[in-house]
């Protein structure tokens, strides 16, 4: 099977888009589509006819609010489809620069939003310890998390290409 064949990959993940009747309930419910080029109905159509979705900017405009998936009269798992296509894209080295950045934060700190000095001060002001009871405070736990990410080859996946 062609790894990049989106329709087949979706089918493997238990997602069928071919039953879409282009009713537009999804796009009519989409908060992102009000402000972006994302048109969920058209997106599903493009997936149906197997267009190149990996380079499609709309892929990253979905806020995963699940409105479309909840309301689709055909029960199409639209958000699951979008997330699956994102996975294929990322494995092809296609991702937004900001997303690569937060992936590196996760690799380094075990947190995608790590602590900073101003929050440490806020914590002390509240009578909390400056570092929370997370990987931030336990270096061995951080090492475990990093080891786990290496084991999954996440470091290689998000490395600058």
């Amino acid at each position: 099977m062609d790894e990049l064949d989106v329709l087949n990959r979706l089918k493997d993940a238990g997602i069928e888009v071919l039953t879409c009747m282009q009713c537009g309930t999804c796009s009519g419910s989409c908060p992102s589509g009000r402000y972006t080029s994302l048109n969920t109905r058209r997106f599903v159509r493009m997936v149906q006819v197997n267009m190149d979705m990996l380079h499609c900017e709309d892929l990253w405009m979905c806020a995963t609010c699940y409105n479309c998936q909840e309301r689709c009269p055909r029960g199409i798992k639209i958000v699951d489809a979008i997330l699956t296509i994102r996975t294929i894209a990322v494995h092809e080295g296609i991702m937004l620069p900001e997303h690569r950045k937060i992936s590196h934060l996760l690799l380094k700190h075990g947190h995608s939003v790590p602590i900073n000095d101003s929050t440490k001060q806020k914590r002390e002001k509240l009578g909390l310890e400056p570092l929370p009871e997370t990987v931030h405070k336990y270096p061995q736990a951080l090492k475990d998390v990093q080891r786990l990410m290496e084991s999954c080859e996440f470091d290689k996946l998000v490395a600058e290409k």
Binding site: M95, L106, A141
Partner: peptide, 15 residues
């Protein structure tokens, strides 16, 4: 010793 959950919108869709 817990870490990031990890965040569903980003990491779940990456890998």
């Amino acid at each position: 010793g817990a870490s990031c959950c990890p965040a569903p919108g980003v990491f779940r869709s990456f890998d």
